[in-house]
């Protein structure tokens, strides 16, 4: 059993029980909100439109989340990343947690985990590291909703400051990964250090996103907008394939 510990029936059993929980919670809130929406006079059409547009909006980002599951599966198998990206999950968090745990055990996400103890340590680190918001959210949510919600909506200036700070925090996260693509190293596999390939993918995906967003705005293709992000990501990844295939010597250049 331990040979296939990453994709055993136990792991699938855990995954399906988590999925059942997510379904129950989501359906509970849909039913309660739907009933209350009708009660306060929101039309059935608006409620149905919300459901349809949310499904469409979600498809493309969900596919990109699926890609990250597959990426992490290289080291962790399919089921653990699947579970982790279904609850609380977020590529940045899960990657950092797994890499930090493996780093302390002399491993890395670039290699397949073959030791069950490393696997269990990664699962504990991912869980404990990420559950904190759930412990205090119920305590502060009500106060925040009334106080900060009111303060942020107090005037245009505070609303803008709120937007700017939340964008800044997010840009901070993105910047770390961009800096790694420009100047990062990989202790286990120096061929994956920052170099022509990583910068090419970074630049191509940025340009693709800017172009696709521009096209969506220019031709008023608002329904295509949610697809711009995953499509740009695939275009960026595709550039790595082309570069490696047609200019392998240049693609292999690293400067770290």
């Amino acid at each position: 059993m331990l040979e296939n510990f990453k994709e055993s029936p136990v792991m699938y059993g855990i995954a399906f029980s988590i999925i059942a929980f997510i379904f129950a919670q989501s359906l509970f809130f849909i039913i309660k909100s739907w009933k209350h929406g009708k009660k306060i006079g929101i039309s059935k059409e608006t409620l149905l439109n919300t459901i349809t547009s949310s499904i469409l909006f979600t498809v493309a980002p969900a596919v990109s989340i699926l890609v990250t599951v597959i990426v992490l599966a290289n080291a962790l198998g399919l089921v653990l990343p699947w579970i982790r990206l279904t609850v609380i999950g977020n590529l940045a968090y899960e990657t950092v947690a797994a890499e930090t745990a493996l780093g302390n055990l002399g491993g890395s996400l670039n290699q397949e985990i073959t030791d069950v103890n490393q696997f269990s340590t990664v699962a504990w680190a991912m869980t404990i590291g990420s559950v904190f918001p759930l412990t205090f959210l119920p305590i502060v949510c009500k106060k925040l909703q009334t106080k900060i919600g009111g303060a942020v909506n107090k005037n245009e200036k505070t609303a803008k400051l709120g937007d700017v700070l939340s964008a800044a925090a997010f840009i901070g996260i993105i910047s770390a990964f961009i800096a790694r693509a420009i100047a990062g190293t990989n202790a286990d596999d120096p061929t994956l250090n920052a170099g022509v390939a990583s910068v090419c993918v970074l630049v191509v995906s940025i340009i693709a996103m800017l172009l696709l967003s521009f096209v969506c705005r220019k031709y008023k293709l608002s329904k295509m907008e949610p697809f711009a992000m995953p499509l740009s990501m695939f275009i960026g990844m595709g550039s790595a394939i082309l570069l490696t295939r047609f200019l392998p010597d240049i693609a292999a250049i690293t400067w770290r």
Binding site: T68, V71, F170, V201, I206, G236, A240, A251
Partner: peptide, 22 residues
């Protein structure tokens, strides 16, 4: 090669729209 570069692709695309605005 594509899977080796998922992170630059993801954060490049994600970052582009934020960097345009901010």
């Amino acid at each position: 090669a594509a899977f080796n570069n998922v992170l630059p692709a993801l954060f490049g695309a994600l970052g582009a729209s934020y960097f345009v605005k901010h």
